[in-house]
């Protein structure tokens, strides 16, 4: 096996939440290998554990058992500073609620990760403008998030996720707060970035539009992987899937 074939691998991930007497295994032994440059969707109804899986892969939350390997590095072996480096340089995050910093302009938001990476200010601003142009918002660089529509805010968030040239983009329900058409535009943009820049896109979603563009779809149910479908198979089934609701 080539050392860098897989960008993310998880081994026996378990995450347990205790609510009073009740013990919920949000993740119950998840093994998942994600190839470099892949566009992968993690699908499942709410409460299936997909967000928990997403957070574990992104190092935003620690699993109770099992390991996550990013570029063959066990995340549990990293100290706080190495984890911060990973979040800064290797992973770009996109959230359902955009999570832009409300008091900062679009450009300042996009530039923030370059500040944490120690990039000189001028270079960071240049990089920020380049990215805003890439997502089609170069002309609105001085606007605050509240002055932008949902779709535009998500574009800014995508530009921010790309700031330090990550190898992985993690998107948690990126279209969850957007209308149909805007959601499609965001999906197209993610797909384009995946193709053009070779960045691996991992998206937790229950948006069926995502299925169309994914290389693979991972179905999660009750904290376990129910099935993994390759794109070729999805194409055959897509007709039957429309209208199906979780």
């Amino acid at each position: 096996m080539s050392a860098h074939e897989y960008v993310v691998r998880t081994k026996g991930l378990v995450k347990i939440y205790t609510m009073g007497e009740e013990v919920l295994r949000a993740l119950d032994g998840v093994d998942l290998d994600i190839r470099r440059g892949e566009y992968i969707s993690i699908m499942g109804p709410s409460g299936s554990g997909k967000s928990t899986l997403f957070n574990s892969i992104g190092g935003l939350d620690k699993p109770d058992e099992g390991s996550v390997f990013i570029n063959d590095v066990d995340m549990a072996q990293l100290d706080a500073r190495e984890l911060a480096y990973l979040r800064c340089h290797t992973i770009g995050y996109i959230f359902q609620t955009f999570n832009l910093i409300p008091v900062m302009t679009a450009l300042e938001n996009v530039t923030l990760p370059t500040v944490f990476a120690g990039m000189p200010t001028d270079e960071g601003l240049e990089r920020g403008m380049e990215l805003l142009d890439l997502v089609g918002l170069g002309h609105r660089y001085h606007h605050r998030p509240t002055q932008l529509s949902g779709g535009q805010q998500q574009r800014v968030a995508i530009a921010r996720a790309l700031a330090n040239n990550p190898s992985i983009i993690l998107a948690d329900e990126p279209t969850g707060n957007l209308d149909l058409k805007t959601g499609e535009e965001i999906i197209d943009l993610l797909r384009k970035l995946n193709r053009d820049q070779g960045v691996t896109v991992i998206s937790a979603t229950h948006d069926y539009k995502m299925v169309n563009v994914s290389d693979r779809v991972v179905w999660i149910r009750d904290g376990k992987i129910a099935k993994i479908e390759e794109r070729a198979n999805i194409d055959l089934q897509i007709g039957g899937m429309h209208g199906e609701e979780f």
């Binding site: 390997f69 570029n71 063959d72 590095v73 990293l78 190495e82 911060a84 480096y85 800064c88 290797t90």
Partner: peptide
């Protein structure tokens, strides 16, 4: 993947 101490390839300490 093996995890010897040098396996943190590519990951540095955040500045």
């Amino acid at each position: 993947p093996d995890q010897p101490s040098h396996a943190k390839a590519g990951i540095q300490k955040q500045i």
